[in-house]
Amino acid sequence: MTAALRLTDRKREAIIQAAIVEFRANGFDITSMDKIAATAGVSKRTVYNHFPSKEELFAEILNKLWTSISAQPDTVYRNDLPLRGQLEELLRAKLYLLADNNLLDLARVAIAATIHSPERAQDMVARLGEREEGLTVWIREAQADGRLKPVDPCFAAQQVQGLIKAFAFWPQISMNQPALSPEMQTTVVESALDMFLACYQR
């Protein structure tokens, strides 16, 4: 990679980070490309060279959020292993992801912007829904193996992830609470496992 290309990449990343700061502080509609340029320490022309519009810059932030979530590996269902251990691995991976400060910042920006403009949320919600499919597939395969009751797997997946997010996502997003301690993470996971398996395990 040439020095010029590295500088271009650094400027692009600086613009994205500046946009995250400004969108989070002031909201999407109030934030201007001029302000983003000033925060990034680049010219307005440089910003427009990378992102022709504020909407495209916001779309890149959503893309980074999507990429962060997509980087998490799925756990493949195993019929020779206990359900609890497999589900615990899935939930702990979710907790690890939700504790990432960069992801939380991206999520705050995305949620704040989409509250004021619901149409902006449609693509994000659809793509995040696709990402949740990993747990849904795991539940469906456990059902096919006769180890879980025949409930709607999408509903069950959303339900158990809701138990996690109630402690490890929404308080951090809405009230800026700190990430869960390791002890609290264990408490949340064990409780979610107890409730899910008591309800759905055959």
Rank of each mutant, 00 (worst) to 15 (best):
I164K: 03
N26D: 06
F58C: 02
F155H: 06
Y200F: 10
S53R: 10
S174C: 13
K11Y: 04
D123K: 15
K11F: 06
A18C: 07
A107K: 06
R45A: 15
D123M: 13
A93W: 00
L193A: 01
T2L: 07
S174I: 12
A121P: 10
V76F: 11
L57W: 00
V47I: 10
S191C: 12
Q172M: 15
P73L: 02
H50D: 05
P171G: 07
I164W: 05
T67G: 08
A198N: 15
R127G: 00
D145F: 08
L81D: 06
Y77Q: 01
Q158D: 09
R84F: 02
N26I: 00
T136L: 02
K165A: 13
E119Q: 15
K165P: 00
N79D: 09
S191W: 01
S70F: 05
A59G: 10
A38N: 09
E60Y: 05
A156D: 00
Y48W: 07
E183Q: 15
Q172D: 07
Y48M: 05
I16G: 01
K44C: 06
E60V: 02
A99L: 03
D29W: 14
R84S: 00
V151E: 11
E60T: 07
E133I: 11
R24L: 13
E56K: 10
E56M: 08
N101V: 10
D80H: 03
E22C: 14
F155Q: 08
D29L: 13
K54C: 06
D80M: 07
E89F: 02
S68G: 10
R120G: 01
S181Y: 08
P118V: 09
A168I: 05
E22M: 12
R12D: 03
V125P: 00
K149C: 07
M184I: 14
D152I: 08
A110S: 15
T39G: 01
A142M: 11
T75W: 09
E89R: 09
G146Q: 08
T136I: 05
V21R: 12
M184W: 13
A25M: 12
D123Q: 14
I20T: 12
V76T: 15
S70L: 05
A121L: 14
N79K: 06
K149W: 03
N79I: 08
A166M: 14
A93S: 09
E88N: 11
M175K: 15
R140G: 00
A157H: 02
V47Y: 04
T31H: 04
R92F: 07
A37I: 11
L98N: 06
P52E: 14
V160Y: 03
I164E: 01
R24W: 09
A110M: 13
E133Y: 14
N176Q: 14
V137E: 00
V137Q: 02
Q72V: 14
T136V: 10
F58Q: 02
L128Q: 09
M33V: 14
S53C: 10
L81W: 12
Q185F: 08
A14H: 05
P52W: 04
V137P: 00
G146N: 12
T31I: 02
A112P: 03
R78N: 14
E55V: 09
T31K: 01
A99T: 05
E22S: 08
R6W: 04
R108A: 11
L98Q: 05
T8C: 09
I173E: 04
L135W: 04
Q122R: 14
Q158R: 15
W66Y: 15
